[in-house]
Design a protein around this nucleic acid. Structure first.
Lengths: 246, 246
DNA sequence: AGCCAACGTAAAGGTTGTGTAAAGGACTGC
DNA sequence: GCAGTCCTTTACACAACCTTTACGTTGGCT
């Protein structure tokens, strides 16, 4: 098979992103291999649970694609054991609409879930979403400038305090995290999915209005001091703190 | 400098497009073989469902023509099983006017549907339409330049924003997608069918004016800032954003 | 010219996502 | 236990959005 045709992607100086796939369907792994390599990913596939677990534990991969139906060792077992050692992101693959596996998988710490059959396009989109979020998290863990100003908002992360026109806001821990995220990405849209995972620590479910409530409460608190400073809503996309051009 | 990129549209020197036909009507497959080979396609025909399924799963073909009435294994079954493994485009062939099969087939993930008897000309047209769209999709999932300028329009896909003469447009998600597509193919006609499938996520139906409305609304929003920047209509073909030659 | 299909678009209709008050839980410290 | 704080869920209203309808216009065709 001719597939040693790797596009030179950008990734400025960074090591190539490596993805491990654990799936007994050899034909499928070959297909995925082609697509991901086209997209500039380093790709490895194994077809046995235990073997995959060992590789995944090595932390040599930035992402693991894990089939739930595996001969020998069940995918959920692999995930559970992997989580003893590593926080490497895992995207679960499973037979169509298997809601139970989905729930269990996410509880065990899978980062996302994709039902077979999937289109390569969708797979790539999910992978990118996960990697982007991981990058956001790592960014967060970096030592960040402890103070930051966006328009009338002033962040002092040492004091864990945000001021509006020099009036300190009384925020709960969650509200603070959300607003800090928005401030650190002022000018960019932050998706509700990302906000939920990073600030609330859980995936956004359908009909989950919790995040909306937090945003609503934050808005109210900000409006106490400044009517002009608004968190913008981008319907279907997320929220955005507009970066003024003063 | 005008970065007038036109990606390799045709197949100049590219690997030949392979088409697989699964149909028990031997005479018909021979007829189709002649036409498609004349048109420069690599053509293979098999007359049994299971055999065809195996070949299709190999992902060696860019398109599968699948008869619904098959001895041994029903065409819909073949499609369903194929979809467990592959997203290879499938054009269903079926007895005249069988609306039920058509609906089921499209739901199972067929890409198009053609009623027997068909003219070779129509078959080739459908095949080309599917292949062209697949190419568009693949292009879409390639890493794309995040910023792009067409005449007075400036695209910033990181911010998901399009500006006219530096005035940011307030676009809905759908409008943004349509305009981005047009911009990325500036100078080329983009068919309504393609726009509908890629931006609206559904096939264009007869009397469906939804896309027209989106175009109309986009035009209005652009015209707020620049009367000269126009989306051209090519009656019966699609829409086009003219690439200026500055 | 006259026909007809394709297109433009205003307005109406239907759907979906969001804003927010209020109630319900979960947790903590006393 | 109980009050207090915080997060989440529920419920309803509303706004934004997408689609459909309806009618007018255009452009290719005979």
């Amino acid at each position: 098979m001719a597939l040693s045709f790797t596009l030179a992607k950008k990734q400025p100086g960074a090591a190539m992103t490596s993805i491990l796939m654990i799936d007994d369907d050899v034909a499928l792994t070959q297909l995925v291999a082609e697509y991901l390599q086209l997209d500039g990913y380093q790709f490895t596939a194994v077809h046995q649970g235990p073997e995959g677990l060992e590789l995944a534990k090595s932390n040599a991969f930035q992402l693991v694609l894990l089939d739930i139906m595996l001969p020998g060792m069940d995918g959920l077992t692999v995930l559970k054991q992997l989580r003893q050692h590593s926080y490497c992101p895992v995207l679960m693959l499973t037979a169509r609409g298997d809601e139970i596996d989905r729930v269990v998988g996410l509880e065990l710490g899978a980062d996302d879930y994709l039902a077979k059959p999937f289109s390569p396009r969708e797979l790539v989109a999910r992978i990118k979403a996960i990697l982007r979020r991981v990058e956001l998290v790592q960014q967060q863990q970096q030592p960040q400038s402890s103070s930051l100003q966006v328009n009338q908002l002033k962040l002092d992360s040492a004091k864990r305090q945000i001021c509006v026109l020099d009036n300190p806001l009384v925020l709960t821990a969650t509200e603070y995290q959300i607003l800090e995220l928005l401030m650190r990405h002022a000018g960019d849209v932050v998706s509700k999915e990302d906000l939920s995972q990073l600030a609330l620590g859980k995936r956004l479910q359908l009909y989950d209005r919790s995040l909306d409530m937090h945003i609503s409460n934050i808005r109210k608190k900000i409006a106490q001091y400044d009517e002009g400073e608004k968190i913008q809503t981008l319907r279907g996309l997320g929220y955005l703190l507009l970066q003024g051009e003063n």
